[in-house]
Write a protein that binds this DNA or RNA. Structure first.
Lengths: 241, 241
DNA sequence: TCTCGACACTTGTCTATACACGTAGTAGCC
DNA sequence: GGCTACTACGTGTATAGACAAGTGTCGAGA
């Protein structure tokens, strides 16, 4: 059930979804919500911050919060693995290992993961059977040794690593567009030179130690990422970061 | 100079940049920072939330904050126009109007902006003289009438609209990849079928009224977007949505 | 009728305090 | 030496109260 503000946030979210607060309407004031939920105003503010971060409500100083709508697309607010991500979209995640090699790191990999040997995994990722992404991940030796023992076709590597005590804490994503290489095209069953959305991702643990460096190439037609924005300089917000 | 926590955040940011807290090191505790800046702990927490949202520090319950590094790429935390965005990157923004027409809205436009006539603006956006983006924006009639009177080649439309009392408050972005159309290729001076990063953007004012619906196509090679992530469910964070 | 000012309301910022719970180092025990 | 339990510390959550500043409404006055 989570903490207090998480419960309040969940109930507010549900209320918006149920149409209690339809898009375009205004939420009750923080004080009213605090009274009706029996919590302090600060707790309500923390809950509302999570809604704002998801783009569900808009905030303006002096005016009650505006309900924007009950959109639900996959955003970046949570750090999620492909498997979790797929499940959140209501699809069945899958994978097929193309290659897993242990080799000396390239200069680019060494810059991110440090010099030495790396395990390099190439996987095709499936959404309900359809290939939608090619994943090329370099793991430092310590992590790669664990990954090598897994069934990367079925398991969520992130979940398995978590069970083994390897926790992903932070990630930096960089998005751009590239053309499909011959291999990409073969793996995704598309024409060569088709456009792909490229995501470079460096994941680290809580100590800032790099755990994986990955280049993912998504089918432009099948997948999209969403982000919500506000001019509002601050307002304690949740999630992302 | 802004509010208290903004000043604290700016000073902490500067301290990280100056190397007072090098990457990999740990920040002083919230209590120590509060004492040394002469503010309450809550204020320090609010400042630290903004740093975390920029991916500058990582937080873990029970442990002091870890300094990740002084990266500085363009993120989504602020709602920025192309012009502001370019300037933040140290480049000179530019633009060239390809077409500005007033016409009946397409079904897709009507869904976002409401039925009726729209002004449709096609622009090539330049970064220090190089074309990097094609922008196709639909404005509702009221806004479009204002835009039509501007010098869209030189002015920042967003800035000019702001002067006229039209304030952009929220935006929802959706990112995917597409191939350059013949027109895209001609405007950006690239080969047809080159990969482009597509950003669909719906901007609204503080009342949730749509102000523009735009499809921007970025040169994949020239531009990249970055996002930072953390498993941390909450932590009051700033900026983004 | 229109404009402007007063006022109640609302959100943003800040302080102070308290407790829960995770972290990390230490000391003691086997 | 190595393991465990304890303990000091630090962050997360929550409360209560205060003031600043923006919003919107209503009423008085021109």
């Amino acid at each position: 059930m989570g903490t207090g503000y998480q419960q309040v946030a969940a109930e507010l979210r549900a209320a918006v979804d149920r149409g209690v607060y339809p898009p375009g309407s205004r939420l009750p004031s923080e004080s009213e919500l605090a009274r009706s939920y029996g919590v302090a105003r600060g707790t309500v503010r923390q809950a509302l911050a999570t809604l704002a971060s998801d783009g569900l409500v808009s905030t303006r100083k002096g005016a009650r919060r505006l309900v924007l709508g009950q959109q639900r697309l996959q955003g970046f607010n949570e750090l999620r693995s492909f498997s979790e991500w797929a499940q959140a979209l209501g699809e069945t995640p899958g994978g097929r290992v193309v290659a897993l090699v242990r080799r000396e790191s390239t200069p680019a990999e060494a810059e991110q993961l440090g010099t030495g040997r790396v395990y390099h995994l190439t996987r095709v990722r499936l959404l309900s059977g359809r290939p939608v992404m090619v994943e090329r991940t370099a793991y430092p030796e310590r992590i790669g040794a664990l990954v090598a023992g897994m069934d990367a076709g079925h398991d969520s590597i992130t979940a398995r690593l978590q069970e083994l005590g390897v926790v992903f804490a932070n990630a930096a994503h960089t998005l751009s567009a590239v053309v499909a290489s011959a291999e990409d095209a073969r793996l995704l069953d598309i024409r060569p030179r088709a456009p792909l959305l490229r995501e470079l991702r460096l994941s680290t643990d809580a100590d800032g130690v790099a755990l994986e460096w990955s280049e993912d190439r998504y089918l432009g037609q099948a997948v999209a990422f969403t982000i919500h924005n506000s001019v509002h300089q601050n307002t304690l917000i949740r999630g992302l970061a």
